[in-house]
Design a protein around this nucleic acid. Structure first.
Lengths: 347, 347
DNA sequence: CGGAGCAATGGTAACGTTATCAGTCGCAGC
DNA sequence: GCTGCGACTGATAACGTTACCATTGCTCCG
């Protein structure tokens, strides 16, 4: 073509016999271009196998760079999912997605300086960053659009993408009740995470709605870690009256509960059902595989990008109300739940 | 400053009383700039809080975009690790790292078209892409530098980053032997992956070196999946003379072996030691936690980026020989291995 | 003492796109 | 027939950097 180099918009324009602007308009599906001209240009584009240069486009146009912020504590699996979802949605919208580490140890000013210098038009904040208040305020002051993913509390005015934690916990609880369980214990997550509270609340609500009383002994503290799950499960299985099911606030703690059950020769799920939350890879890899709630992280990330796009284009504009994407969770039934032993019929 | 906008190289030049080129040279730590001038410029940079615009830099300069290719079958955890390592090394070298999905179903020409259109200066190919021969050839034809990560076979002339699979397997085998094991079984991975063969070979070599004969019954086929691990373990534990240790080619299959042992009331590690390979998150989350070999995926990704940088700058130049980065693996000892039961002293 | 050689700078043209504004053309309204 | 308008198209200037000479002053050598 032109010396081994890739065709530029100019090559296309020359071939189609139009100006570069017309090509640009066609390429961006913009404004008024006559059908005849459009066809000519499209033909030339196809013939030359032309693809716009994203870098030049970014420099000339609004330079749309968005960042996925993350803490080093984020598991790489979670980060991978976030990326997988975010990347293609970002590409579709001509965004450049960059990944930015963002520790809580460093002062907010420093983080903000990095964000400004990186010329970011917006940021996606997965947990736990979405609950770092100082950063959120600083972003607002600088007018940098941000989207929260599964935050603990809803920050007014900011777009949010989340699942309904309470409803999911409620559904799982109902599932266990329908299997015949009456003595269902609950392992809480880190009390600093409100999602933990919301899950607990969904559990409580449903137990109450079904007329089942919950002994406070059956609700034990955890902090989302495997280790805390071990302790919590030991406390529960030390009780005089054992629960027939344990519903843990995340998969790690559920896995820990299964481990303790194994140690005590309690068969799962025959004697004890165990359910988790999050559907981490772990859930499918342990034995028995964990029944759990799947958060569609990839879709959430995609949705976050969409919301961010809206926030960037119309800062404060568009819908006056809270932008909120509630995605569908899914209960993944595997082998860790079953009808309880000595099942008494309801009455 | 200049109207709410970020300072450009021109602002810095004006403030320092030099030309933009001098600023550019200072910013890139290049060639000859007198210490006095350098100091002036650096002062101005600091005062204005100037940061070069990566987009403009990419457009003007060599446009260094490199891609991390991946298959959809890649676990998100692996992808996350790759990214974590690749990202910061790429940033350090002023590369833009993009992530590109790349299925085996689509024709090579189509993949190549995407790569060319995306203006990639190089690609990193993690497994299993690094063993897709047609793609490798096509890349070579187009002159796109590529780095292989942990490929099954070494493609002459291409840079490779890997650990020594055979040596790692050998070390793990020796570890088990030193604990006192004599009947050590091996679960192979997918026969199409040469790394599986190399691990098997390391195991065989070490057994032989220690004068231990290996019954062919003790070497069973798997394909890296949990399910195949279940079947393999069942075959092994059906044998008349049980092994005292099982060394599986990856963690999923090792976890499966532990599951089968649990089902048969065989205590791990008291009656049976089980070891894996890869140190996936699973390894630390099951009970007993898995003793396994850790591949430093993050470091490998970083190293791949470094090698790629070399390949991009000097295509064929620099070292004439095979560029190869062999990274250190690590045996992570957890709770799934122990001295065998009825331990007979060596003789 | 004239110029070759070199360190240190500066001017200016790319890089490939989009924004902005200025046309051009045909046609309806007065 | 001129004016105005609306649909369409084109020139040209950004965008912020780096690459590629050109231009200084020097020093050093014959």
């Amino acid at each position: 073509m032109n010396g081994g180099k890739l065709p530029t918009i100019r090559d296309v324009a020359a071939r189609a016999g139009v100006s570069v602007m017309t090509v640009s308009r066609v390429a961006n599906k913009q404004s008024w271009v006559s059908p005849a001209t459009r066809a000519k240009v499209e033909k030339a584009i196809a013939e030359l196998n032309y693809a716009p240069n994203a870098t030049a486009r970014a420099l000339a146009g609004g330079d749309r760079r968005v960042a996925l912020l993350y803490r080093s504590s984020t598991t790489s699996a979670y980060l991978g999912e976030l990326l997988l979802g975010g990347m293609d949605e970002a590409a579709r919208r001509h965004f450049h997605l960059v990944v930015e580490q963002c520790e809580s140890g460093v002062p907010v000013e420093e983080v903000m300086a990095r964000i400004v210098q990186a010329r970011l038009s917006g940021v996606v904040m997965p947990p736990p960053l979405c609950d770092w208040d100082e950063l959120i305020e600083a972003l607002a002051r600088q007018g940098v659009p941000a989207v929260m993913m599964a935050p603990d509390r809803v920050h007014t005015g900011l777009p949010v993408v989340a699942i309904d934690d309470g409803q999911a916990a409620s559904d799982m609880t109902r599932h266990l009740i329908e299997l015949g369980h009456r003595r269902i214990a609950f392992i809480r997550g880190n009390p600093r995470h409100r999602s933990s509270d919301r899950r607990l609340e969904g559990y409580r609500r449903t137990m109450a709605a079904q007329g089942l009383e919950v002994s406070e002994d059956y609700i034990v503290e955890g902090d989302f870690s495997y280790r805390s799950g071990l302790e919590a499960a030991e406390r529960l299985l030390d009780l005089a009256v054992l629960p027939t099911a344990i519903f843990a606030c995340n998969d790690d703690m559920a896995a820990a509960a299964i481990t303790i059950a194994h140690q005590r020769q309690i068969s799962v799920p025959a004697e004890l059902s165990v359910c988790g939350f999050d559907d981490t890879p772990l859930a499918g890899a342990i034995w028995p595989a964990l029944t759990t709630v799947r958060q569609p992280i990839r879709d959430m990330s995609r949705a976050a990008m969409t919301l961010l796009a809206g926030a960037i284009r119309g800062p404060g504009g568009e819908s006056e109300g809270q932008a909120l994407a509630r995605l569908d969770y899914q209960i993944i039934r595997r082998q860790s739940d079953a009808v309880p032993p000595l099942h008494q019929e309801r009455g």
